[in-house]
């Protein structure tokens, strides 16, 4: 509901939804992990309720929901999905991975966010890499200067930031 729901409702006729079955399976798996983890917690509480009770309660809830999702999946009670563009998604994820790597290796804010800017705009279909690179670099440099220098926010500094 935070986004527009995916397309027109043509679900009833589509039969079993494999992806939804995977979701139900994942929920059940999470429930099992919760129970397993709760069993690892030593029971130490003298009064009231221990730390292992709530995980079990939530696990039971997840188990029921896994079942409900499974029923929905088998009945095909799910809204139809439109085809997605995997390249765009992978491009943005690559951008995020680059950002994390650059920050992790001390490459600094400007390099990291410029990389994210360029990959994201490419994901949205832009092919003018050089233009976007320049726009991204200028934008992030201005952001860096405004927030780090003027507003004294602490943003990670790399080789580029030290030049400024």
């Amino acid at each position: 509901m935070t986004t527009d729901s995916a397309g027109p409702e043509t679900s009833a006729s589509r039969g079993v939804d494999k992806a939804a079955i995977v979701i139900a399976g994942l929920l059940a798996a999470v429930a099992l992990v919760l129970v397993y983890d709760a069993n690892q917690i030593p029971a130490t509480t003298m009064y009231g309720m221990g730390p292992q009770v709530m995980p079990v309660v939530i696990a039971i809830g997840l188990g029921i929901l896994a079942l409900a999702n499974l029923i929905d999946a088998v009945r095909g009670h799910l809204p139809a999905r439109e085809s997605a563009d995997p390249v765009a998604v992978l491009l943005i994820l690559a951008g995020l991975a680059l950002l994390i790597a650059i920050i992790g290796f001390g490459g600094g804010f400007i390099l990291a966010t410029t990389a994210l800017f360029v990959t994201t705009s490419a994901a949205f279909g832009r092919r003018a890499f050089v233009t976007d690179l320049i726009i991204g670099a200028v934008l992030t440099t201005v952001i860096y200067l405004a927030f780090d220098r003027l507003l004294t926010l602490s943003l990670p500094a790399g080789p580029l930031e030290r030049l400024l």
Binding site: D148, R149, L150, L151, T152, S154
Partner: peptide
């Protein structure tokens, strides 16, 4: 929450 002490980075910003 991160609270900035003015001394944290004496060489930056308007300070």
């Amino acid at each position: 929450i991160k609270k900035r002490e003015p001394l944290a980075r004496p060489w930056r910003g308007p300070l």
